[in-house]
Write a protein that binds this DNA or RNA. Structure first.
Lengths: 218, 218
DNA sequence: GTTTGTGTTGACAATTTAGTTAAACATACT
DNA sequence: AGTATGTTTAACTAAATTGTCAACACAAAC
């Protein structure tokens, strides 16, 4: 029929992978079509044969990146499991995701800063409304049981993704500031799975029958 | 003598400001010399008259950005004040800094990811050694008094800058995910000064005479 | 008033880059 | 063998972008 013609396996996927690497490392403006072609070890003309233009290819890669990110988070945010377990899973899963593709977080956020409209067609808002509504229910539940302080779902979620994503976004900076080589950096990241989980839970939990730790008026 | 010749006031500073804005918003690759010239309402040739090339101008702006950032943090990290007060001041100061120049954090980190060598000549490592050594002393002190859990200076510092900087780096994403307009976003940021401070302190503090909240083996 | 030095400008050159096209070749399927 | 699709090579266009240069403007010095 149509597919399965070229000599080796799927070229389209090969290009996708190369584009993913180059775009996420250099950003849209910094990436050259030639870089992507080199990475895939093909020529530039073939890029345009498969994906009409740089913009089209970029949008595809960007969309994929967002999808993979949300796809990993979604099942956890919707799972009906205890709050602390949910936090732990969220932290571990997001860290694993970033370990697999270290530049993805920076890529998504930098491109969104460049042009916020790049994500507008996806109604991410609706999705996050579910995420946060869901989380909010769990939080009020735990609050009423007296096991955690009063905290908004938005705040907690933002705390978590800040703690998880920032070390990847600031990788180069942290390596120099903390004097870490590649191995030391990745060891720190792995350590952070437990560390962040503990830190977050400690930050919101109330120990047995005690009123919340710090005065909580705003 | 040499200065004070042109009709209106200092052009060099005007260019600096324009370059700062354009570079920090679009990054090195995304910024065009024409954009900077437009922003300053001058001719492109004049840019090259004052600053030889795009690279030279960029390095200057980048260095300025890092300097301003570290310059604000330094006095707090070296101040001999109680730990919790230091944390509060650090959070508030960094947030104020980011409010004044919202794209700076993203700018610095993105450019460092693009080319880590951009910061190598500055020995930022030495500075952070002082920062962290200093903080470490304060932490062991408080730990021995039984008021906080055992935590490494690197971990705490990373927690704090993650919580503070990420919301600025992820501004565009957060606005869409949380459904915030400009005003709502900035209100959230202001709220975070107290919120992050409380969250961090809560995350490391031990309430009167109690063993640490969560099992702390790694 | 002329000269001089610096700030400023417009036009120009050189390079880079995205994207196109045409021709040739390769390989799988019929 | 013949056809359709994938792939390479090469040249090319058009636009964008950095950097340079000679001329101009104008205030201060002579």
């Amino acid at each position: 029929m149509s597919k399965r013609v070229g000599m080796d396996q799927n070229t389209e996927e090969l290009i996708r992978q190369s584009a993913r690497k180059v775009f996420s490392e250099k950003g849209f403006s910094g990436a050259r079509m030639q870089d992507i072609a080199d990475e895939a070890k093909i020529n530039r003309a073939l890029l345009h044969y498969y994906f009409r233009s740089k913009e089209k290819l970029f949008e595809l890669i960007f969309d994929e990146a967002v999808t993979r990110f949300l796809g990993a988070v979604q099942p956890i945010m919707f799972a009906r499991i205890p709050l602390f377990e949910k936090i732990e899973k969220l932290v571990a899963t997001e860290i694993d995701l970033c370990v697999a593709e270290p530049c993805n977080a920076m890529f998504i956020l930098h491109e969104m800063m460049r042009n916020p409209a790049v994500l507008e067609r996806r109604n991410i808002r609706k999705l996050y409304e579910s995420f946060l509504g869901n989380l909010s229910v769990a939080l009020t539940e735990e609050y009423k049981r007296g096991s955690i302080v009063k905290i908004e779902a938005e705040s907690l979620f933002l705390h978590i993704i800040s703690l998880v994503l920032f070390p990847f976004i600031g990788k180069a900076y942290l390596q120099q500031a903390f004097g870490l080589d590649e191995e030391g950096y990745w060891r720190m990241i792995q350590k952070r799975k437990k560390e962040v989980t503990r830190f977050v839970i400690n930050g919101i939990r109330i120990l047995e029958g005690r009123p919340e730790g710090v005065s909580s008026d705003s």
